[in-house]
Design a protein around this nucleic acid. Structure first.
Lengths: 234, 234
DNA sequence: AAAAATTTAAAGTCTACACAAATTGGATAT
DNA sequence: ATATCCAATTTGTGTAGACTTTAAATTTTT
């Protein structure tokens, strides 16, 4: 048989399964019928059911194990997907005009805390770049970044006066792994100065570590201006 | 032909495509060969190529459009997936013993700011629940929550002295949409008292709004203890 | 009993093919 | 030149069927 306008689509199945979960028809921890039976119920092939259930599992509603079957997750491990935008895009999306300014850029030796964080040898050479991102004339983000010279030798020739280190890295070095952390920190004198807020002010802060195939590439600390909110919907 | 141990798997294709992107072989914005040609190259069916490319597109590496083809996204819109854990799980994952304590629970009329936030009528009845989550005897999170009575009438009978409002809601009401926001706020006298930090201390704060089919269900504000870090890897 | 080997049920993945839907780009008409 | 229509291309999704892998359940052996 072939696909007509009356064909059951995997999207229909997803919808139906979700509504049965929500209605309590298939309660938490309960076992769903197997793919064959569902295929029979929806009069479609197992392939189609498989796709629907696989996607629902990806989205955190179901847990699937061979032989054990498919069950409803009791505490739906809903996952929020934050798209990590580049500062420029974020500023422009908020209706501002993006402006970048380099604060300093120098070759240094990795301090202890950084070496520990990135699993470097103490004193291994790193490029230390500090810069500002503005929305119009308002400070938006202060960025404090270290780039591992041994992993990215080209960084010694890079000119960060016009282009930000993040944009430079993205178009220069690929990465395979990222660790992202968010926290609330207190503005020290320097950060307060750059962001134009009182010293001691709470600052939404992000830390990002990037690796390429196990090699540490960069560590960045991003201090957001007062009032910054990171939002997502799902 | 059938599947042997030498069969090309969609995972192999994903790996190969990714490595070609990373090596610059297929640079940003470049157009990939169409599915047919890739299938020929990998000597597999178009179905298999389709799955590989579809997943890479889901993961934010590629953009696909009918007739236009598949292109490499210039700025890989990598998406961080934060799994939103329940406080209990988070505390236990960190090796602590979870303890819950109700602070107050009362029926109120929605104040202006809440009504605006949830698109309620001013004065619409809401259940206002405040509670603490501990790790051992250390404060972990202070939660300030409002539940829309008209959307969840059962809430008037709920007893929040033993179970937290979040856990109660999860096992009682399904939800379809969530908005999640994180920010750095300043501890006011009350929050400082509950979290046992000095007044004015930076506090990592989360806000969560939940809807069921367009109906606002609950608004929660979560204040995390000093030093809290939200981390993810991808 | 406990441990090891075997069976078996379920999801995972692939082949091979077909039709559907979207959108681009060119042809045609205004 | 501009608007409209049409054909071609590419991804999207389905059917039907088979083999593979995992791990739960059962049986056999120790």
């Amino acid at each position: 048989m072939t696909q007509t306008s009356e064909t059951t689509s995997y999207k229909d199945i997803k919808r139906t399964v979700l509504s049965r979960i929500r209605s309590g028809d298939w309660g938490p921890d309960s076992l769903l019928p197997n793919e064959q039976d569902l295929a029979a119920e929806f009069s479609c092939t197992r392939t189609t059911v498989n796709r629907a259930l696989r996607e629902l599992a990806d989205e955190g509603y179901l847990e699937r194990r061979r032989k054990a079957g498919t069950r409803v997750l009791s505490a739906p491990q809903r996952q929020a997907r934050f798209t990590i935008p580049m500062v420029r895009d974020e500023v422009e999306a908020l209706g501002g005009t993006y402006r970048y300014a380099l604060v300093s850029s120098a070759r240094e030796n990795a301090p202890d805390w950084l070496a520990a964080r990135l699993a470097l040898r103490t004193g291994q050479p790193v490029m230390h770049v500090r810069c500002m991102h503005f929305s119009g004339n308002t400070p938006f983000q202060y960025e404090d970044r270290w780039i591992v010279v041994d992993s990215v030798p080209q960084v010694m020739q890079a000119d960060f006066s016009q282009i930000g280190p993040n944009e430079w890295l993205i178009q220069t070095v690929p990465f395979t792994n990222v660790e992202l952390t968010f926290l609330a920190s207190r503005a020290d004198a320097m950060v307060a100065g750059f962001l134009d807020v009182p010293e001691g002010e709470p600052v939404f802060t992000g830390e990002r570590i990037t690796w390429l195939e196990g090699q540490p590439v960069t560590f960045a600390k991003m201090y957001f201006a007062a009032g910054y909110r990171m939002t997502t919907q799902f």
